[in-house]
Nucleic acid binder design. Structure first.
Length: 178
DNA sequence: CGGGTTTGACCCGCGC
DNA sequence: GCGCGGGTCAAACCCG
């Protein structure tokens, strides 16, 4: 079965990345950041990103107004580099694949996904690390204008620890099943 | 039959 | 202006 660990996260486009208990900002991409959001788990071949990753995305949403946007006007980008045999992992949102491109200087194709939720124009790109195929680089672009259905699912189980829901068969994993 | 994926074509920005 | 490369579109295809 696949090994799986979050290696690094990157904060791109001069976003403000706040820890839950501090106002520490990271103005530029920080590829050597400590993987403090690394408690992902797996179950029966179905991978789900834990609340740590979801909180990362939520934290990004809290970024101050006046933020610098990219050329597409989608706002922040945030990238994760993680060790995994599978590329399409369940992060709690529902995505639709809309493109696939081979990238120059990389033997691995890049896959393009859009969030299928109405009015939400968040996109993500998934590609394998050109230097180490055991790593997957996932780049999120934009901010969700809706809650994760995965989170809602977990909120319906108040007696369970947040990560405990990962051990349950996620109803949202179908969008990424291989 | 409907929804998701594939894939070639097209568009656009950037560097020369 | 031209070529290249990345990103997106959309028709065809696949599958439940």
């Amino acid at each position: 079965m696949a090994d799986f660990e979050l290696s690094d996260y990157l904060m791109l486009d001069a976003g403000v990345f706040e820890d839950d208990t501090s106002e520490k900002g990271m103005g530029v991409a920080n590829e050597s950041a400590t993987p403090k959001h690394s408690n992902m788990q797996k179950n029966n071949g179905v991978f789900c990103l834990s609340f740590s990753l979801l909180s990362c995305l939520k934290i990004c949403r809290r970024c101050k107004s006046g933020e610098k946007k990219n050329k597409l006007g989608l706002g922040h980008r945030i990238a994760f580099r993680m060790k995994s045999e599978i590329e399409a992992m369940d992060d709690g949102y529902k995505w639709r694949k809309y493109g696939k491109k081979s990238v120059k200087n990389s033997p691995n194709p890049r896959n393009y996904y859009k969030c299928v939720s109405g009015g939400c124009n968040v996109k993500k790109r998934i590609e394998r690390d050109r230097d180490d195929k055991s790593y997957v680089i996932t780049t999120y672009e934009g901010v969700h204008n809706h809650e994760s259905p995965y989170k809602s699912y977990c909120n319906q189980m108040p007696l369970m620890a947040p990560n405990a829901c990962i051990s349950q068969p996620s109803p949202f994993s179908s969008s990424f099943s291989t």
